[in-house]
Structures are given as structure tokens and as C-alpha cells.
Design a protein around this nucleic acid. Sequence first.
DNA 1: GTGCCCAACGGTACCGGTAACGGAAGCAAC
DNA 2: GTTGCTTCCGTTACCGGTACCGTTGGGCAC
Lengths: 340, 340
Amino acid sequence: MHSKVTLADVAAAAGVSKMTASRAMRGAKDVSPKTVERVRKIAADLGYMGNYVAASLANNRTDLIGVVVPSLSNIVFSEVMSGIEDAIAGSGLQPFFGVTGYDPEREYQLVRKMLSWRPAGLIVTGLDQDNQTRELLSATSAPVVQIMDTDGDPVDLCVGFSQTAAGAGMAEMLLTEGRRRFGYVGCALDRDTRAAKRYLGYKAALQSAGITRVPEAVRNARSSVADGKALTADLLTQHPDLDVIYYSNDDLAIGGLFHCMEIGISVPERLILAGFNGLDLTASLPAPIATTRTSRRNIGIEAAKSILKRHASAGSSAPPALKTVEIQHVMDARQSITSI
Amino acid sequence: MHSKVTLADVAAAAGVSKMTASRAMRGAKDVSPKTVERVRKIAADLGYMGNYVAASLANNRTDLIGVVVPSLSNIVFSEVMSGIEDAIAGSGLQPFFGVTGYDPEREYQLVRKMLSWRPAGLIVTGLDQDNQTRELLSATSAPVVQIMDTDGDPVDLCVGFSQTAAGAGMAEMLLTEGRRRFGYVGCALDRDTRAAKRYLGYKAALQSAGITRVPEAVRNARSSVADGKALTADLLTQHPDLDVIYYSNDDLAIGGLFHCMEIGISVPERLILAGFNGLDLTASLPAPIATTRTSRRNIGIEAAKSILKRHASAGSSAPPALKTVEIQHVMDARQSITSI
DNA sequence: GTGCCCAACGGTACCGGTAACGGAAGCAAC
DNA sequence: GTTGCTTCCGTTACCGGTACCGTTGGGCAC
């Protein structure tokens, strides 16, 4: 019945007080090495396991960092999470994740629940939370980092890059390549506000160049290679004269590439395909596609670091760690483009 | 200072006792609707936010389900996590994830940390934890589900499929296709014990068919499309006569396919490529590859369900929810093969 | 021996909730 | 009026740790 062993049991067995046992287990000061050893030995024998819940309540803080992402089927967020993991490894902090499925209501519930755990920090995706969620985020005393996007008004900290600049940058690169007949393929733009922002930036840049007509094929489903194939087929049937298509992400673009290979359109000579994210896979494809390499691991790392930093400064001095709107750009969207 | 509002404050403001306020907030019985409404109104006005830490300590349980996966860069685990999310949505439980990076020591620390949170359940990947981890898992009173693999000796619950059977099944299918010169490409077999098991099953089935020579190209790095390309090139240089290559997963096989397309080997006519997982992408490739469709979302769903079920039964009756070794096969590895 | 200091340990009061039980008020049946 | 049952709410005692402050005792200077 190891699960019922409490610190008091250990203390009793070691013939010391709970307090001493507590100090011994935590490696705190004011305990003799001999006592530490004895207590730890007995704890191990008894199968004692610390109780974080009680400890957290006692000192009014947890070691948890809440991470809110919209989706797990998108490899991009897995990589962000991976970066977070790596950055806080060894700091004693522990990330815990939640998924919204791009649903604002679910996001609200999730943030609420996470805050109820009194986390050491919160990392949320995007800048476009709805009002009630935003209110929660600004009311909490824990540091909050909004990631992936810098086009907007952060609650506290912010790590990411400009999505509109990414879209615009790609458009500019494609114009430089001499293309003029632009198309667009996207998925779930109603929920994925970042993809929508890229599209806006793309269209705006084209407009500046005098290009106003941008045929699009859009679907409200989660994006996949298969969707990319189908939507590209649709778009090219309607507009066979396109010489470039911008996709809301790499998966769709890869589907587009496979479609072109099937029906014999030469990529990139006749048609340039441009995706977004710079997945590893894009470097190995049978034909080159353009893409924007997002430094998503870095975003995770920097986001975690900024929480750690906030904690370090809060621990040392008095200032109550006010919310300070700070935007950190981890990449220049225009310089990260892999052209073809 | 919303973060300092406590239930006692709410109770005082509402002119009731802490206990009544608690009941009102939780929607428990024995409170008049009028009181509930008043308390909740005041709680909202004061910006009161429940404290899960305190609540969990008080009733000695949390709503957390710990999930331990080896990697996040592998889309497979993201899909498992996604399945878990969906299955427990609405149950009030909350998953929290941890990543081991295929490191047994890190896995041990992670499991320990998670158990310190007294979770409502634990889901860990694989059956091959090291001894100290296994000890933790069998000592805890929380339900433990081991997933992805059924070739071994589960601690408690188990949801997955036989990895060796998957490897063997693929070999048998390829034999039926009339192939005789088998190769193998794999990554990180020392750490990814499931991939290693598939390889064993594959070789054993070939051996039964009288095929003992299976040239391999193996690398100890995380697998990627680029690795698949490189390793395939290596293997085919050494053994140009192969007529089938089995890969430890789809990513590598896709890399292999791209290599073949580049150097003009016809797939699948001259060379069959076989991967593993049945990623969506494999259905959209320019040339067909064989694969085994793993039902990873289902594994997540069933794992979560079995924890929920255990909880339901524990809540109703007296039996202290003993560890009962139960293996649930969510798929038949031999029937899930997509041949070419 | 006295005074002083510091290392090592213990007592107490929490942290913010909740379970269990008790008790007052209101109403029906006898 | 008494009994008995609800309905609604309060009191008490924790849950398992930790912060804070106090206490003890042994070593050292004088």
C-alpha cells in the first residue's frame, strides 16, 4: 500500500519531526547529512512518494507550465511543444498541454481550468483569443506568452513572427520570379486565423503590384495532402492559366505537387507551388516547392525561456512582475523564404 | 487582484459559510437555487477562480491523466494524444503530457513526477519500461495503460497490437506478391523497441520461408524522409538486386520512394517499398507503397476509455480496482496491411 | 565557568478547499 | 402537540505538505 505512505509516516519511522523529514527530502538546509541519509533511506524503503498537490498548496505555487495549442494533428505544434520541453528541461518545471481544436469556447474552458491549477506560466497559441479568454489571461498573475503571431495586441509576452509579413514576403518573392497569374488554396481559414492573416498579407502585396484577381479554392476542413490534391485539381480546372499557387501550408502544397505530377504539369517551370512552414519533407520532394521556413522549435524555446526569465527576476527582487507587453520576433518572415 | 480572491471571500460577501459557497460553486446538492445564484453572481463579480490544487488535496484525487510518449516529432504520437483528448472530452478529466525522448532515465523521472500529482490515470507508451519504472507503475493505485504494443507483459491495462505480428504480416504479404530478395531500412532501433520488434517479426517470417539473408541499412538517428533517401541509396548501392525493402516506418519509405523516382527505379514494379503506420500521406503519393495502417487514434481513444471504465466501476462498488492485466487488441496487424 | 553563536531540529499555524455529520426550520400525518 | 421527514445550511476536522519562529545543545573565546 505504498500509495498511502505519507511524510508523517517517514518522519515517525526515522524518529524525526515531519518538518525535518520534509527538509531532508527536499535537500533543504539546516539538516545534518546523517539525518538526510537516514530519512531518505527510510523513505525509499517505505516507498514514499512526494505529493505535489499538497506541496503546491502549501507554498502556493506549482511547477506547471500550461500550454494551449489548437491542434495536435499539425506537426508544427508538436515541434513547438518539443521546443518548450527542451527549454525547460532541468528547470524543474513541467509543461502540461491542452488542445482547443480551434474552438474559442473550448479554449476558454481550457485556460480557465489551467489557471485553476495556479501554473507557473501559460503559453497560448495566437493573439486572437475571444474577450472572456483575454480577460482571464490579463487577470492572472502568472506570466502569459502568446506565440506564433505578432500581428496584434499581446496580453503580456509574445513570441513569434508576423503572419501577414510572411504572406506578403512570399508574394513579393513570387513577383520577383516574374510570375503574374496568382492562385490560392487554403483550409479552415475561418478558424485558423494565422493562415487567414498570411492570405491577407499575400493579397495585399499583390494588390500593391497591381494584381487584384486571385482565384482561390478554399475548404473548411482540416488540411491534408489529400485536400491539397483535390483543391488544386479544382482550382486548375477553373483557372488553367495560373502560373503560381500559394497554399495555406506545406501539406496542401505537397498535395498540389502530387496532383501536378499526375497530370503532367511541370513544377516549378510552368507552375510554382508555394507552401508554408518549411517542413523537413519539403526538402526531399521530387520537385522543388517554395516555402517559408518557420522556426517553430525556436518559438517554443524562446517562449519557455521568457517564462523562466520572468520567474528568475520575480524571485530575486520585489517588483510584482507586472504584465509587460513584450514582443519577440524569432524570425524575419521575409528572410526565411526558400525560393525555388 | 483577482488572483487572491478565495472561496472564503466569496462566502463572506454572500453571507454564507464556506461550505455552502463550495456547494453552490460545484453545483452540489443541498443548496437552494436562490443561494446558488447569489453565490455565483458574487463569485463572478469578485473574479473568483477555483483552486484545483486545494480541491484535489481535499478529496485526495485529481482529474489529471498523465500521458507519457517517447517523442512529439513523430506524428503518430500526436494522433494518439488527439484520440485521448477526444475520448475524455466532457468527462471532466484533463490529460497532461510528458516526453521521454526514448530515454529510460527520463521516463522514470517523468513517471515519478506524474505520480506525485496523484493522477486519475496514467497512459504510457510501450511495454518495455525499465525495472524501476515498472515498479512505480505497479505500485501506484491509479489505473495504468500501456499502449502501442501487446508483445510483452503488461503491468495493468494494455491497448495496442502485436508489433512482431505486424512485421511478420508484412513479410508474408510481400512473399505472396512473389518477392524473394528482401532488404530492410531502419532508424534508432536501439531505442525504438517497437520498430525493433517489427523487424524481428519480419525476419522470423522470412526465415520460415527459407530466406535468411536480409541486407539492412540502419542508422541511429531520428527517422526522417531525408534519412530514408540516404539509407535507401546506401542499401541499393550495396545490393542493387533487391526487389523489396521494408522500412521501420512510412517516413523512411517515402524517402526511399523519392530516391527511386530520382534514379529511375520503377516502384512498385521492380521494387516494392513497404512502410509502417499508414500515414494519410501514403495514400496520395505519386507511386504506391505498401504500409500497415495502424489505428493510432483508436489506441488513444480505447486507452482513455479503459481508464474511464475503471473509474466508473471503482466509484460504484467496493472492490479496490486491483491491477488486472487486460490486453485489448485494437487492430489485427495482418488485416491492416495496404498492399500494392 | 560564563556568555555567545550557530547548527540542527521541533511546534504551530497555516494553504484553500471538501467530506461527514449535526442541527434548525418547515410541513404533513397522526 | 408530537413525531417524522425534507430541505437547507453550518461546524468541525481534516488532506499532506511547508513557512516561520522558537528551542536545544554543543563548541569556542575569554
